[in-house]
Design a protein around this nucleic acid. Structure first.
Lengths: 105, 105
DNA sequence: ATTACATATAAATAATTATTCATATGTAAA
DNA sequence: TTTACATATGAATAATTATTTATATGTAAT
């Protein structure tokens, strides 16, 4: 098992589908089928994304009958997600005010 | 100018060189030449990375004589960087304890 | 045991992103 | 006003990552 670096966390969060999955998992644990349904994406694609999240230590899973249930590996990820969302708003604000207007088309 | 989403922030942070640059800028403002020197990478490569950071609203720049000085666009990015670093440690810890050991080679 | 359901995997392809190389631009000094 | 220095850009290539397709595996119900 590799060391989990902040770089790896960012990489995992930098894909739209993986990010969506993580946000869903931050609300409740979910079976693969539910994730497939709620995202509307293909099952093998979701399975790949879940594997990446698992292998990079951001998600954990266990089997329950026919289903496999996924969860966030750590509560601290919820914190990451919300802090970055806030920062996104702040940066956006700063950018609109200071210099980005100059480059508008 | 595009809306800055949390996804874009993650994308910018998910490249080793860009992340290194952002961490450097979180300590002090720097001229391009200094960044090139301190990272040891090629000048055009750094210039490309800086452009990405600028265009995504994470960095700002101004000219000072022959030099161009870069800075973080927002203090809140420092917060993001440190929160994720912490989360990395936490996740790592959780993972080592709970389930990743099972998959060790 | 056979079938159906849920999930995982591997290999192939497609798409995106990073890096290099050559050169252009903009500023200041001689 | 030529030269040097600092940075930026564009086009070409290389490398990485995402997606699809086909199929395998594992569990449970009949």
């Amino acid at each position: 098992m590799e060391k989990i670096t902040d770089l790896n966390i960012y990489k995992m969060l930098s894909d739209e589908i993986r990010l969506k999955i993580l946000k869903m998992l931050s609300l409740k644990n979910m079976a693969v089928g539910e994730i497939v349904e709620e995202t509307g994406m293909d099952q093998p694609l979701i399975s790949h994304k879940l594997r990446e999240l698992r292998e990079n230590g951001l998600a954990a899973s266990y089997r329950s009958g026919k289903n496999v249930i996924y969860s966030l590996s750590s509560e601290s990820l919820k914190n990451v997600i919300s802090v970055v969302e806030e920062a996104g708003n702040t940066v956006d604000y700063v950018c609109n005010c200071i210099e980005c207007k100059e480059h508008d088309e």
